[in-house]
């Protein structure tokens, strides 16, 4: 964990209610699947946001405006300085991927797949990516994943773009050795049921601190009680209790 100040250098809307922010600061020790916890003026608790990318001293996050805090974030101007805790959570284990990892992101669960995909490609793997959204106006980052060299499938619930249905409706098109997923809990459960290999799931929970001190976000697993913020947010398929 590190506590440093980042400067906002870009903040733009990329899809319906969805914003991409680029922050400049100390990105050392940030791993794929981890999150950062951002202090926002006027709010007591920090906002935990997953890491989308880190490159050249820049941290990219993508977030959905869901409440008052993220609304303020969406309106932040370039040059805003933000107090950020980085290096939070366990992150994904890239060593388990095999040659053909499958990455499955749904909505606000898409961003953490990006850094993971980039790093897997760098390791010489050939990842496939399934991105799930509600509707066409919510779709983002399809091209970004394609530019990394991944085979990308997009699903929309209403069928307005790509494959009609849920992320699991694209599973049959893909051959995979292992999978990584992040998204709303019903989607994670569907991926759990549909998947035929082992894999890793990134969970979300309301957090107090984000670094393991308050026990606010605990969950039960087959391997004992875990704190989503510190022992997670990534859990392996074999330990999950639904």
């Amino acid at each position: 964990m590190k506590n440093t100040v980042f400067e906002l250098i870009k903040n733009k809307q990329i899809a319906k209610n969805t914003y991409e922010s680029v922050l400049r600061g100390d990105i050392s020790d940030i791993k794929a699947g981890q999150f950062v916890n951002i202090k926002i003026d006027g709010f007591y608790l920090r906002r935990p946001i997953s890491v989308c990318n880190v490159e050249n001293e820049e941290l990219t996050i993508i977030y959905k405006v869901v409440g008052a805090g993220t609304k303020v974030m969406a309106e932040m101007k370039q040059g805003t300085r933000l107090n950020v805790l980085t290096g939070l959570g366990n992150g994904y284990d890239l060593s388990k991927s095999g040659e053909k990892p499958l990455l499955v992101g749904g909505g606000a669960g898409v961003p953490p797949m990006y850094l993971l995909c980039r790093q897997l490609v760098k390791l010489g793997k050939t990842p496939s990516v399934i991105l799930g959204f509600g509707s066409e106006n919510e779709v983002f980052y399809e091209e970004e994943f394609q530019k990394l060299g991944a085979k990308v499938y997009v699903t929309t619930v209403d069928g307005s773009y790509g494959i009609k249905g849920f992320v699991t409706d694209a599973f049959d098109k893909v051959e995979y050795t292992y999978f990584y997923t992040c998204g709303p809990e019903p989607m994670l459960k569907a991926v759990y049921d549909k998947s035929v290999t082992s894999g890793e799931f990134s969970f979300e929970e309301r957090m107090g601190c984000g670094f393991g001190a308050c026990m606010g976000c605990s969950c039960k697993t087959k391997y004992g009680n875990k704190r989503i913020c510190k022992d997670g947010p990534v859990l392996v398929k074999e330990e999950i209790i639904w």
Binding site: Y44, E205, R206, M207, C214, G216, S218
Partner: peptide
Amino acid sequence: TPRIAETP
């Protein structure tokens, strides 16, 4: 859970 909520 949830067992954390924000307040003013």
